[in-house]
Amino acid sequence: MFVGVAYAAEEGGSAISVVPVLADIWPSILAFLLLFFLLRKFAFGPISSTLDKRAATIKESLEKAEQTKVDAERMLEEYKQQMAEARGEAGKVIEQGRKVAESMKAEIVAQANKDAEAIVAKAHEAMEAEKKAAIGELQASVADLSVAVASKLIGEKLSTADHASLIEKYVAEVGSLNDN
């Protein structure tokens, strides 16, 4: 069969030739060179620069993202610290306010107590003075009344000296009554 193939192939006048044909050589080199220069200028060049640009863009974006992350973390830390400081400050202010209020309260209460005491004392004084005045008045009127009664009883006037001694004696008696 294979002898037949070889025979038939030879008979057809087209046995496979492994010798390059000039008609294939020059178009292939021409086509290659033309394609090479055209592709390098209009395709591979732009594609290559785009690839480089993309790589640069991605790198830049990643770096930016990393920087942003670092910034965000730093800011968060700062805010946390500020928050803590503010909280502490607020606590201090409240504490101070409480202290001030307490001291004011104590002062007000003390003042009130003092005022009350003063008022009570004044009232006492006034009452004492009133009492003394009333007693004085009472004593005077008792003396006068006694003299008048005695004069009427005795019917005659006592000497001034008798008078005086009698009054004193009486007053002393009344005074001792008052003490009880």
């Binding site: 069969m1 193939v5 038939a8 192939a9 057809g12 046995a15 496979i16």
Partner: peptide, 13 residues
């Protein structure tokens, strides 16, 4: 054989 020969002919330059 003939068909292969024509095939080979087809693939020649």
């Amino acid at each position: 054989a003939e068909k292969l020969a024509s095939k080979l002919h087809h693939y020649s330059v």
